[in-house]
Each structure stands twice: as C-alpha cells, then as structure tokens.
Amino acid sequence: MMQALSHNAQWVLLATFLLGMAAGVTGCLAYWKRQSLMSDALSHAALPGVVIGFALAGYKSLPAMLIGAAASALAGAVLVHRIRAGSRVKEDAAMGIVLSVFFGLGIMLLTMANRMPGGRQSGLDGFLFGQAAAMVQSDVQVMAAVAMLAILTVLISFKEWKLFLFDPDFARGLGLPGKWMNAVYLAILVTVIVTGIQAAGVVMMAALLIMPAVSARYWTDSFGRMAALSALFGGAAGGAGTLASLWGEGWPTGPLIVIAAAALFLVSLVFGLRKGLLLPLIRRQLAKRRLKGSALAGRSGLPERGSLS
C-alpha cells in the first residue's frame, strides 16, 4: 500500500495520523473539563495571530505564523476565562464572543495583509481552510514533533491529570498546582490546535478534538483506556481521511477526516460496550429470555439482583 503513495504523501499521512492521536488525547482532557467547544473557539481565535505572524516575518514563515497563532489563541482562552469570571455572561456566550470577534479581526487583518507583496500568492488563506496535500516535508516534521510533545506531556504526568480533572479539590489538597496544570492544559490544547489548523482547517480541528474523545467514552469507564482509545480513533480518522483524499483526486482532506471521525462516532454510539445504544436492547432481550426460562422451570420468575441493570 505504501508503495502506491509518493514520498511526500507518506509524510502527510504520518503527520495527520500523529495529529489525530495528539488531538484524541488532548480532546479527552477537554471533554472532562467540559470544554469541548473551547477547541472551536480557540481555533477561530488563532487567525489574527497567524496574519500578524506573517506580516511581521514578511513571508510565509511557519514558525512565525505558529507562534502568532498560539499567542492569539491563548489570548482568546484568557479572555473567555476573564469574561466568564468577571461578569454575568456565561461561558458559552463568552466563547461565541471570542470566536466571532477574533475571527472578524483576523479577516480585517487578512484583507490588509493580502495587499502586501506576496500576501495572496503565499496561500495564507490555505492556512485556515487546511491544505494537507500542500504540506512539504519540513512542515510535516514540525507537526510531528509538536504532536509527539503533546502526547508525551499527558503521558508523563498521567496520574496528576486524572486527579486534576476528576477531583480538583483533592488535587489541591495534595498540593498539585492547579493554576499551572490549567496553564499546561491550555498550552497543549493551543499547540495541538495551531499545528493542526494548516493540515485540517479550523472547523476540522474542532471536530478532531471533540469526536474521538466522545466516541471513546462509549467503550470504557477508565480514563486511561479512554485516552488510549481516543488517540487511536483520532489517529485512525486522520489517516483514513488523508488516504481518502489522496485517492479521490482533489477532494478536501479536512472534511474527509471529519467524516471518518463521525463514522467512528456512529459506530461507537451504536455498538459501544459501555454506553452504546444496542447494549440495553440486547440486555433486555437476554433478561426477557432468562425470565421466561426460569418461569418455565418453576422457580421464582425474578432474575437475580443486578443482572437486569
């Protein structure tokens, strides 16, 4: 299979796979912080920074644009927090405000940057809507490194993350620095988002952060297994979407990745072993059969305690 792909395509495939894994793991953190839509807000909020980074560097320099994107996404995250904590406006409205106002500012700046020499040709717009196929090896290497970094950060202090997410009070009692954990969480989230945007696009990045985590939740109750599964789902969606776009000439990669993730979600929703829709139906059938069998055998018709749940 790999022989059929060009050298560059293999790099792109590897990158989207790693990106999917990083997004899957990070999405788990966001899921349990009840901030699934934060990824959507922050990926939109990255736009002004991308343009400013481009304008300051004077050409399409990936590091400058990434740093700019990270800075403005972080500013967005801080603002969401400040608006929620400092007024009666709720978190969802705060996210909506940051998302739309930052994106509006970004479009203002983008229109101005497009008048700069090299603005239009540099494919600045592509950065937003995702052009996985246009990535070159060095772009891919940066992305792969960042994705590995995000995954490792979560792995190394896995126990601390668990405490931080599920029992923040206990974590504080143990002396875990909650503020710092929160900062690291935001840093990982922002890093994954800004590296992912250029491959998958703004909306697609949100999908990759949300869907694998929700899908994984249907299969297990353990956080560790959920994170691993989520990484697997994310990686699979990234890989499958990229392959599909490579084979169907000119099909957009980002949306195909989303479709792959959505398919995985649907499968999990129906067949999931912990919370899937099919499970209660099967259980009910089994219980009914057992009830019938025991009634025929002349014993008490009630099943044992717990077997119905």
């Binding site: 899921y31 009840r34 901030q35 699934s36 839509l37 990824s39 959507d40 969802d92 909306v203 697609m204 949100a206 999908a207 949300i210 869907m211 985590a213 929700v214 000119g250 099909w251 957009p252 980002g254 949306p255 195909l256 989303v258 479709i259 959505a262 979600f265 929703l269 919370k275 829709l277």
Partner: peptide, 27 residues
C-alpha cells in the same frame, strides 16, 4: 437525549454537517 453532553453534541453535529457541505461543494 442519548447521554451525549450538550456542548459535545453541538460540536459533533455541526462539524459533521459542515464537512458534508464542504465535500459536496468540492465534488
């Protein structure tokens, strides 16, 4: 109603429908 959190279900639904839209436009 099937137990997915509100914000997660919003995220799932709109990204999927938007992706289908973009693919239809492209194709």
């Amino acid at each position: 109603n099937r137990g997915v959190r509100q914000e997660a279900s919003i995220g799932i639904v709109f990204t999927t429908l938007f992706a289908i839209g973009v693919i239809l436009v492209a194709a």
